[in-house]
């Protein structure tokens, strides 16, 4: 089961997702130990593989261009982030790493912390099994989905080569 971890905040920035004091390494497992540390010190203790972060708010991932933010989330085995909107560089980094994002404004009224959810990325359907609700969203653009399916931009380039 994929549990939703709900945060109600705008502008959750990359300094909160992975603070710069941990940027002296690019080891994904090291970074994962500090994922979201300055936002929720308990996050790494409660997250389980496949869980989803649901942000009720806009501009997730603003600030520094550090891709370490995506790696920390991926290293913590988060399967996707749902938010009202995403900051530009974070959005690109996620696509380039093959990490799925879902743009869904007002997710707060239909998803509570701890709900069991599944996401159909291509179909644009988020199912909240706990509440028996289905929510639709606009899937990421085709070229982004293609990069995500190939496991990231560099695989995409290596394949074209």
């Amino acid at each position: 089961m994929a549990k939703a971890h709900v945060y109600k905040r705008d502008h959750i920035n990359t300094d909160e997702i992975i603070p710069a004091r941990f940027l002296n390494t690019d080891d994904e497992q090291e970074l994962a130990k500090h994922c979201l540390e300055d936002l929720d010190a308990n996050f790494v203790k409660k997250v389980k593989p496949g869980d989803v972060i649901v942000v009720v708010g806009d501009d997730f991932g603003c600030g520094s261009s550090r891709e370490h933010a995506v790696w920390a989330l991926r290293g913590a085995k988060v399967s996707a982030v749902v938010a009202g909107s995403f900051a530009r560089i974070f959005y690109r980094n996620a696509i380039n790493c093959g990490f799925p994002l879902v743009e869904l404004p007002n997710a707060g009224k239909d998803i509570n912390d701890g709900d069991d959810i599944t996401i159909d990325l291509t179909g644009g359907i988020l199912t909240n099994k706990t509440q028996g609700k289905t929510l639709s969203f606009t899937p990421m653009p085709d070229f982004a989905m293609e990069i995500i399916r190939e496991g990231g931009l560099l695989n995409h380039i290596a394949k074209k080569k």
């Binding site: 550090r66 891709e67 560089i89 690109r92 980094n93 380039n96």
Partner: peptide, 8 residues
């Protein structure tokens, strides 16, 4: 950009 864009 991030590291993957940089690499590309």
């Amino acid at each position: 950009v991030g590291s993957t864009d940089l690499a590309a």
